[in-house]
Amino acid sequence: MSGTGARPGGAGGPARRGWPDGAPERLYVVGAAEGPPAERAPLDLVTLVVTRPGAKPGAHPEHGAILRLCAGPLSIAELSAYLSLPASTVTVLVAELVEDGRVEARAPMSATAHPVALLEAVMDGLSKI
């Protein structure tokens, strides 16, 4: 409970700036260039993780397990569930793999990005289920 009183997505909030290493930034993203480029979007429960082609498993078995699971995109929440590890632990492991360039992390979208198009896409998708 930080008590900062910051409104999620409010001005000066944790704007998604995308990853500096070229993760996809199409789809509803606007204003991704704002802010210091070195600042990475924080990893979120719904950040999607994908193993980069040719990534070496390395010595750490948990890293290896993540690399294997993320042959296709998978959220940190799903990784946490499948690995039976707390999401905070998975977040640390994924951050290490991002740092190494062994995985790509696709930052989540929030309604502050491009709300109308995003919400339309959500409503459209939901109405089809």
Binding site: L48, R106, A107, P108, M109, L118, V122
Partner: peptide, 9 residues
């Protein structure tokens, strides 16, 4: 997930 999935909400 579909491999083409680029973002989550």
């Amino acid at each position: 997930l579909s491999p083409s999935t680029v973002a989550a909400v």
